[in-house]
Amino acid sequence: MRAATVAVAALLSLTACGGRATGEPPMSTPGEARWAQVRFAAPLPRAEPALIQIPKLKVSAPVTRLGLKPDGTIEEPPLSRPNLAGWWEEGPTPGEGGPSVIIGHLDADHRPAVFYGLKSLVRGDRILVTRQDGRTATFAVERIERVPKTSFPAEKIYAEDIDHAALRLVTCGGAVDPATGRYRDNVIAYTRLVQP
């Protein structure tokens, strides 16, 4: 399963964005004091996500499954539902051991979408995922990274060999390519399962 995940992961960086250019918010500074108080949690059993909440950004969004399109690229949430996030169903579920991945649009139809404020999160900010088993997995942001789509770190995002439960949130960022109308970069939030 991991090999298949890595094989398609690079394609995510080409498709998973609104590309309707509202511009992105400014980057925030790290919250080192909050990170020092974080206590990590043991992984949970497998259970699919139902809702993602990012209190700092006032985000509360349903989560759908994402698989592959007929052309082999990864699906993305429809632009007609800008508040919908998508979980990559070939990977771990949020809270399960390993890197789970949820993607969402930065914008849609010139309006901010579900992950518009992702870049403004800082170390220690919380992300909550309500799972279909009734549990809520709480994650703390470790770091935010912006990378060119041409060098998207697919293996690190989807198949990194880690000994804990992690969640990676992916959206677009950077400048818009005038030729395509799409953002040139991806913004990635790396998070880790913590005690509530």
Results as ranks from 00 to 15, higher is better:
G97C: 15
S151A: 12
I162V: 15
H110D: 04
P70R: 11
L79W: 00
A7E: 12
S28V: 05
R46A: 04
D125E: 11
R192V: 14
R39M: 07
L118F: 10
T138P: 00
G134L: 08
A154S: 15
T29A: 14
A9M: 15
D107G: 05
P112I: 09
K69G: 06
V59E: 01
D125S: 04
A113D: 05
E48R: 12
D125T: 05
P196M: 08
P45Y: 08
R65F: 08
T5Q: 03
A137R: 04
V38L: 06
A165K: 01
P99G: 10
E145W: 13
L193F: 06
G134E: 03
A108T: 02
V114S: 01
R46H: 06
P45R: 09
Y190Q: 02
S13N: 08
R146F: 03
E96L: 09
L51F: 02
G174F: 13
I74K: 05
M1S: 13
G181N: 08
G31D: 02
G117T: 09
E142F: 06
S120A: 13
L106T: 09
T150C: 08
R81S: 13
A36H: 11
G67I: 07
R168P: 03
L193N: 05
A41K: 04
V63I: 13
P92E: 05
Y158D: 05
D133S: 10
Y190F: 14
G72M: 13
N186Q: 08
A21P: 05
V6N: 15
G98Y: 07
T136N: 05
G181P: 10
F139Y: 09
K156S: 10
S13M: 10
R143K: 14
M1W: 09
T130D: 09
G31R: 01
M27I: 12
R2D: 12
I127T: 03
L84G: 04
G124R: 06
I157G: 08
R182M: 07
R39N: 07
R135D: 02
K149E: 13
A36T: 10
F40W: 11
K69R: 14
E160P: 06
I188A: 02
S151K: 11
T130S: 11
L169T: 02
A50D: 10
Q37P: 06
L68H: 02
E24K: 07
M27V: 14
P178C: 09
L11N: 15
C172M: 08
P45M: 01
T15A: 15
G124W: 04
P148Y: 00
Y158E: 02
P78S: 09
N83K: 01
S100L: 12
L169A: 09
A16K: 03
L128G: 04
A41M: 01
G31S: 09
P26I: 05
T171G: 09
A33I: 10
Y158G: 00
V147Q: 08
P94W: 04
A166L: 05
W88D: 00
G91A: 06
Q53V: 13
R146T: 15
T73Y: 13
I102A: 04
S100M: 10
W35T: 00
